[in-house]
Design a binder for these strands. Structure first.
Lengths: 194, 194
DNA sequence: ACCGAAAGCTGAACTGAGTACAAGTTCTTA
DNA sequence: TAAGAACTTGTACTCAGTTCAGCTTTCGGT
């Protein structure tokens, strides 16, 4: 990793952590991009060269987390023998683990500024496409509809777990919630389960 | 309905249809709120008194549709004897019928301006809360998790149908897709269905 | 039909997000 | 170490969204 790349990641992280600090102190609306840039020691222009919008700085994933996530997917692609939904469940458990630091922050930001709920959803867009492709590869029949349905439903189940989870509770509770939600969604919601 | 209310609805519709026309002509980004207001014969300020944002004008539902939707829910609340998931499926079929004019427009707008995908999701927020409450009422046990899961999953299935549907195809195809998606999601996705 | 109150409309002036660009600085590589 | 690519910065701009004071229209009671 050359000097240039290292500096870039460092700048990214400085800007992001500064932003999160200010936002959690004053609230999202009360912090301007100007403020963040100044506090992080870069220009407004530079801020926008790192993040496409003010919202992005609050919701984008760390590049390294993203890389870890891709690795996770590639490692898992080999054992085609496991049932899809089982593998999917484990995958989401891993995602939850990966995002364990991240989720409480997100939830706090969204809680005090509900208008950001949409952007929060959008934050999944950075890792979701890979997952979708992964599902498509695993579903032998080349069924567009089924791929989309499995993907969207599994994601909805995951989001439900995140939504219901109380950040004050332990990480294990979240992981258990994720497993429960995916089990229910996989087993069928038409008939009540115990 | 007094004169005041009638005028208001009329203005709402004028602004909205003007906006949609301009947007479909020039694309979302190439139309300013100024343009829309001018073309609709109101001031910029008035525009923002009707719609909270430029995006909202492209995605908010017609007040009358919303009212019809609420009626639909109330009518359906009586027959508690039908299985929940069946009632839910019919409900979404009705929603699809209600939005049949609307969906193709949405899809076109989003297609030529992908950044709006999040806002498009948000458009469900106007009718979703009612649905969620409805589900909560139907689930006898007062289970927060289960309510959220059923709601999110059903919505995801519905969105999948919309996503896969080609607006050039007939409305019946959409309705059939909605039924298929909800059936699959309800029956359980863990095991492949024919 | 009239009047006071309430609701709606408007223009002006403001803040802040996001973009474009030209000029300067720092890293890379040959 | 020199040429060039990549990064940073200030400036100047457009446009979304808010606030507010003053005007017009509608409403309800008389």
């Amino acid at each position: 990793m050359g000097l240039r790349e290292r500096k870039k990641l460092a700048a990214w992280r400085t800007i992001r952590s500064t932003a999160l600090r200010l936002i959690s102190e004053r609230g999202f609306d009360a912090v301007s991009v100007e403020d963040i840039a100044a506090e992080a020691g870069v220009s407004r222009t530079t801020f926008f060269s790192y993040f496409p919008s003010k919202e992005a700085v609050a919701f984008e994933f760390d590049p390294l987390d993203l890389q870890r996530w891709r690795t996770l997917l590639e490692d898992d692609v080999d054992d085609d023998d496991r049932p899809l939904w089982e593998a999917l469940t484990d995958l989401f458990v891993d995602v939850a683990r990966l995002l364990s630091e991240w989720l409480p922050v997100q939830k706090r930001v969204v809680a005090d500024c509900p208008g950001l709920a949409n952007s929060a959803r959008g934050s999944c867009d950075s890792f979701a496409p890979d997952l979708r492709a992964w599902i498509g590869r695993r579903l032998t029949d080349d069924d567009e509809l089924r791929t989309a349905l499995v993907f969207n439903t599994a994601l909805a189940a995951f989001m439900t777990a995140v939504e219901v989870w109380d950040p004050d509770d332990s990480l294990d509770e979240l992981l258990e919630l994720v497993r429960t939600c995916l089990r229910w969604a996989g087993a069928g919601l038409a008939h009540p389960v115990s």
